[in-house]
């Protein structure tokens, strides 16, 4: 069996993280494969149901990337997203799923290398947790 490469869904705000990912790409920075970037108009658009559906479909980790605190284009979308992430982490814990599979980060549009490093770091955490138990059952 080949080495486990986690499948990660990253919800990225169009004003910052999405551009940072773009920058990372154009700089030809290597970061973890198997990351699906989903463009959202603001991290405030992130909803718990999006993460739940990603997990249900077999994602090993879900990442939310929004603007630096104080820098949200819609004032506090990133703050709201953070609260939802914390809420869902607690719910995941209660159903026996590792809350570390869900995380949020704040970056600015120019932080391509940082974005790549954050994603790698998150992928490392998820890798350490192993495949999501849901994915295992889907495969069975």
């Amino acid at each position: 069996m080949s080495e486990f490469e986690p499948k990660i869904i990253a919800f990225c705000c169009q004003y910052c993280a999405y551009n940072a990912a773009d920058t990372a790409g154009s700089m030809r920075l290597q970061y973890t494969p198997n990351v699906e970037i989903v463009l959202i108009p603001c991290s405030g658009r992130f909803d718990v149901i999006l993460a739940l559906k990603a997990f249900q479909s077999g994602a090993d980790g879900v990442y939310v990337a929004g603007c630096l605190e104080g820098g949200c284009h819609f004032l506090d979308g990133n703050i709201r997203a953070k609260k939802r992430v914390v809420y869902l982490q607690n719910e995941l814990k209660k159903i026996g799923l590792e809350p570390e599979r869900l995380a949020m980060v704040n970056v600015s549009a120019s932080q391509g290398p940082q974005f790549a490093a954050y994603i790698d770091e998150f992928a490392g955490v998820v890798k350490g947790l192993g495949p999501s138990p849901i994915k295992k059952q889907l495969a069975a």
Partner: peptide, 19 residues
Amino acid sequence: TKEVEILAALLRLDAQKDG
């Protein structure tokens, strides 16, 4: 509707996880 969707998703995940 939204809370129904979320609770359903959580309960499904829980069941899926345990097979």
